[in-house]
Amino acid sequence: MSPAWAVALVGVLLMVSVYLVAVMETIFGLRVSGVRGYGRAWALPMSRAALLLSQRRSVTERPDAQAWALAPALLGGLGAVALTAIPLAAGVEVADVDAGIVLFGAALVQVMVAVFLHGWAANSLFPVLGAFRMAALALSVSIPFSLVVITTALPAESLSVGLIISSQESLWNVVRQPLGLPIYLITGLGFSFWAPLQLPDARDLSGGTSAEVSGAALLVWRVARASILVAVAAMGAAAFLGGYLGPWLPGWLWMAVKTFGLLAILVWSGHRIARPRMETAVKLGWTVLLPLALVDVFVSGALTL
């Protein structure tokens, strides 16, 4: 795909889906809090964005200003890059690379760097605590994450996301490796530090890495963070739910339906599942998710043969 088209496509997709994530977040929030009438939810993200744009950006006493400016830009860039690895319809792929899942994994793992810098740069207690939480969280989830993504490459005999989708013609990977999707979604929540795994930006840290951020800087940080969640959901749809494959409807619509289905599950879980303690999250990654992911690799592998 030509770079100009790629930029336009990814840009529009990200803007639309990030907006929808914000709407979903509001609607699920209202639902759980027992309020009816969701009409307001559709305009709310725009009002919130306008409010943030009307506020001044905060600076602390002696921050690492360049790192602070870089962090949201890097995070948003990584969300966009991760999305380029995923075919959005048959043949509509920004980057048809052989090592597609490696590209996606590289983009997602770098999120850790963006969040660490975002918290560290403020030179303030709670953001710094958030930065170190992100490091511990991302290190704990990244191995099981990579393992389940690699497992989807087994039947495809390729690391290309396009081939992984077409290998699901007969059977979706979610059936071939039932442990895969849940582990993928949990670890994906960890990388996008979204509730219930929003430990780096949690309320017990008064907002963590974004505790000292306001105005436009806070707006771009929230948008960038949602873009990671969108990329995670899109990859989940492609790698486990057969991507654009499906009867009757056009491919891109199937892809959209599946992606937003996963996004709904991810956003919903934030309101329904408690945030674990830091130690519990680390233990969960190493002593539950990692062994399960290994079981997943070998059982699905044996079944593939």
Partner: peptide
Amino acid sequence: LGATLTVF
């Protein structure tokens, strides 16, 4: 990957 780089 040129397109990816541009998007980034």
